[in-house]
C-alpha cells in the first residue's frame, strides 16, 4: 500500500516537474524569439544604405555628376541576366543622363569563372574613359569569352579594349596590377554590405529595386525619386 502511495507521489512529482519544465521551456523560447527579432531589427537599422555608402576608390559612372538622384548598379559581366538588362541600362542613361547619376559596381559571382577577369579588364578600360562602351561590348559578346580558359579570355578582352582605341600597354599594366583586382573586391564587399546576393542588382537612392521587368520598375523608381528631390 505504502509502496503504491510512494509511486503515486513520484508520479505526481513528475507531473509537476513536467509542467514546470514545459513552462520554463516556453518562456525561454519566447525570450529567444524576441532576441532574434531584436537582432534582425538592429542589423537592419545599423546597416549602411546605398545612399550613405562611400567609395574608397572611384567607380565608373554615367550621367550627371552632381545629380540628386543616384542609381547604383551591381553587375557581373558573365551573368546572362545582366547582359539581358544592359539595353535597359543604356536606355535609362540616354533618358535620364541629364538628371541622374549612374554608378557601376562589379559583383562577379563565384560560379562564373571569367567574371572577375572581365571585371578587372573593365576597370582598366574605365581608367581610360570608355567604361560604358566596353561594358556594352562585354555583354553583347558574352558568349564569345565566357567559357574560354582565363588566358584565352584575357586575350579576347584585350582585343575588345583595343577595338575601342584603348592604349594596350597601359591596359596590360593595369590588368597585371593587383590594386585593380582590389578595386573589384571593394565593389564586391560593398555590394555584400548592401545585401546584394544576385545580379543585376539596382538601387535607386537607398531603395533596392527588385521587381521585374526592370525596364518598368527602374523608370518608376527613378521618376518617383526625381519628383521627391524637386
Amino acid at each position: 500500500m505504502s509502496q503504491k502511495t510512494a509511486k503515486e507521489q513520484r508520479k505526481a512529482n513528475a507531473g509537476n516537474a513536467q509542467r514546470s519544465a514545459a513552462l520554463k521551456k516556453y518562456g525561454i523560447a519566447v525570450v529567444v524569439v524576441l532576441a532574434v527579432v531584436g537582432l534582425i531589427a538592429a542589423i537592419v537599422m545599423t546597416r549602411e544604405t546605398a545612399g550613405s555608402i562611400s567609395d574608397k576608390t572611384p567607380d565608373p559612372t554615367a550621367g550627371k555628376a552632381d545629380a540628386a538622384v543616384v542609381v547604383r548598379v551591381y553587375e557581373d559581366f558573365q551573368c546572362p541576366a545582366c547582359a539581358g538588362v544592359q539595353p535597359v541600362v543604356e536606355d535609362l542613361i540616354k533618358e535620364y543622363g541629364d538628371r541622374v547619376k549612374f554608378i557601376f559596381n562589379d559583383f562577379p559571382l563565384p560560379q562564373h569563372k571569367n567574371a572577375t577577369t572581365a571585371a578587372v579588364a573593365a576597370q582598366c578600360v574605365f581608367d581610360q574613359g570608355k567604361y560604358v562602351e566596353y561594358a556594352g561590348v562585354l555583354f553583347s559578346k558574352q558568349a564569345e569569352w565566357e567559357l574560354l580558359s582565363t588566358e584565352k579570355a584575357q586575350d579576347k578582352l584585350r582585343g575588345y579594349a583595343q577595338d575601342l582605341g584603348v592604349d594596350v600597354n597601359k591596359f596590360n599594366e593595369c590588368v597585371a596590377d593587383s590594386a585593380t583586382a582590389d578595386r573589384v573586391t571593394e565593389d564586391l564587399e560593398e555590394g555584400r554590405t548592401l545585401g546584394v546576393n544576385s545580379t543585376p542588382s539596382f538601387f535607386v537612392g537607398d531603395k533596392k529595386v527588385t521587381e521585374t521587368p526592370f525596364s518598368a520598375s527602374l523608370k518608376n523608381e527613378i521618376d518617383a525619386a526625381l519628383k521627391a528631390a524637386q
Partner: peptide, 17 residues
Amino acid sequence: GLGKAVQPHQQFYEVMK
C-alpha cells in the same frame, strides 16, 4: 534565414518566382 531576414523580403520573393 538571418541573411534573408535582414534583406528586403521582395528579393527572396523574386527568387521564388
